[in-house]
Lab assay of single mutants.
Amino acid sequence: MIVFVRFNSSHGFPVEVDSDTSIFQLKEVVAKRQGVPADQLRVIFAGKELRNDWTVQNCDLDQQSIVHIVQRPWRKGQEMNATGGDDPRNAAGGCEREPQSLTRVDLSSSVLPGDSVGLAVILHTDSRKDSPPAGSPAGRSIYNSFYVYCKGPCQRVQPGKLRVQCSTCRQATLTLTQGPSCWDDVLIPNRMSGECQSPHCPGTSAEFFFKCGAHPTSDKETSVALHLIATNSRNITCITCTDVRSPVLVFQCNSRHVICLDCFHLYCVTRLNDRQFVHDPQLGYSLPCVAGCPNSLIKELHHFRILGEEQYNRYQQYGAEECVLQMGGVLCPRPGCGAGLLPEPDQRKVTCEGGNGLGCGFAFCRECKEAYHEGECSAVFEASGTTTQAYRVDERAAEQARWEAASKETIKKTTKPCPRCHVPVEKNGGCMHMKCPQPQCRLEWCWNCGCEWNRVCMGDHWFDV
C-alpha cells in the first residue's frame, strides 16, 4: 500500500509500505531520502505521535493516508518512550493509558441525555464484534464512529474520518494533550489543546475536521460531520418502519427517538411537499423529531443533505422563500418566477423588478396576487391545505425507538455506581478489583462488596467470576 509523507509540512511524497511495516522502518526510509538522522524524526498522525514499535496496521493507516513527519531533536526523557523501550505506560498493571487514536474515538455516547454525564468515556458498548469485510486488514473493525456528507465523488452519507490540525499553522502536526470525549470537544473551536510539532510553531489549540472515509482524499478535501447519525450498535428499532437498520439518525429530543435514513428521507420529502418545515429565527429551515417532541429541531442543517441534490435544492429554495415571508415580504405569483420581494408595508401595487435578471417585471396586487387592478379585489380565496398535519407515529413504536432507553438498560445490566462519587462504572470481565475512572475520584473498590478495596476482598473473592 501507499502512504503519503509530508516532511516538515512540505509537499508530500509517496512511500510504499506493508501492513506489518513498523513506524521506525518508515522513519528509516524517510531519513534516507531526506539525509537526516532517523532518531530525530517524529511521525504524527490523527493528533498522535506514533511509536517506533507500532506497525502501519496498528495505527489504522489506510491506503493513501497522509502522515506528517517532522525533524525535531529529542528532548530529555522522550527518546526512550518513542523507541518502544522502557515506557512506564506499558508496564503490566499500570494505570496510565495511551491517548486514544482519533481513528478509534467514539462519540456516540454523547447523544445520551444530559443526566448521563461521564458515560462518553466510561461506558463502552460490546456491539462492535462484526466481522471485518472481505479485503480489510485482519482485526480491523467495521464499526463506524462518525458519518459525514461527502460532496465529492460519493454525493451521499458516508463513514467519516476525524482529523485534527494546529489552529495556528493549519498543519496536521499537532499532538493532542488528551483525546475528545464528546461532540462539544470536536465542534467547539479551541476547546481542546495540544502541542504543535512543526518547527518554530508555538500553536497549542486544536482544530478538528472530518474527511470522507470511503475514498482517498487530499489535504484540502473536508466534509461536514453529521453528528446525529450513528451506527445502530444498540439495535434500536426505527420509529417509523420498526426495522432494525444501521446507520440511524438520533433526534435530540428527551427520548432520543431513532429513525433509519430511508424513513428520514421520506419524512423530509413529505414535509417538504406540504411546505411544513419549521422556520426558526436562529436555526433556519428545519424539522423536529418525527414524533413531534418539543425542543427537538435539527440544529445542523447539513443533515438535510440526505435528501439528495434535487430535493436539497428545493429545500434551500423553500427556506429562502419562507425567510422572505417571515420578513413581511411577498413572492411573485407569476408561474416560473417566484422571486422574493420586500415592498413597503402599505404598498398595494407590487412590481417584480426586472433588474439584474432576477425579476420578471410582472405587476400584481398584494392582496389577491392577481395582475394589478384598481378598486376592490374580486375574490380572495383562503389558501387550502395549509394546516399542519401531524406525522403519524405509532405510540408503541415510539416507545421502542428510544436510544436513551437502550442506554439505561445497558447501564443497569453492566454497571454499578462507584461507592464514593456514584458514577456508573462498567465491568466487562476481569477481577473484582475496580478503579473509578473519574479523575477527581480514582477510588479503588470491590465490585462484589461495593466497598473500598481491602485485604478481605483480596483474599476471599479477588478473582471470582
Rank of each mutant, 00 (worst) to 15 (best):
R396D: 14
D115K: 08
G84L: 12
P99R: 14
P288T: 07
S110A: 12
W445Y: 15
E309A: 12
R366W: 05
F362C: 04
C431T: 15
V121M: 15
P133Q: 13
E367S: 07
S65W: 02
C457Y: 01
V70A: 02
M80G: 14
V3Q: 03
R455D: 15
P419S: 04
S65N: 06
I142R: 10
G329S: 03
H215G: 02
S218H: 12
S198Q: 13
C95W: 13
N313Q: 13
D126E: 10
K32Y: 13
H303S: 04
R455N: 15
I122M: 15
C166Q: 00
S131L: 11
E426G: 09
E300I: 03
P417L: 08
V269F: 02
V121Q: 15
D53C: 06
H215L: 01
K299P: 05
C289N: 00
Y267E: 02
G357V: 14
N144S: 08
S181Q: 13
V121T: 15
W54C: 09
S193C: 06
A363V: 13
I142W: 10
T387D: 11
C238W: 01
N58V: 05
T83P: 14
V5F: 02
N313M: 12
C421I: 02
T204K: 11
K349C: 05
H68R: 01
W453P: 02
P424N: 13
R314H: 03
D115F: 04
Q34Y: 13
P281F: 06
F7Y: 07
C449H: 03
I236K: 09
S116N: 14
P133N: 10
G354R: 09
T217C: 12
V425T: 14
H257A: 00
D280F: 06
S384E: 06
T83N: 11
A401Y: 02
V121H: 15
I229D: 00
C238E: 01
S116R: 10
G361A: 07
D346E: 11
Q25F: 04
G93D: 11
F381P: 06
E426K: 08
Y285I: 05
M327V: 08
L226G: 01
C436I: 02
A38K: 04
S205Y: 10
C377R: 02
S233Q: 11
T55H: 05
S101W: 07
C253F: 00
H422S: 12
H302K: 10
G385P: 08
E452L: 15
K427Y: 15
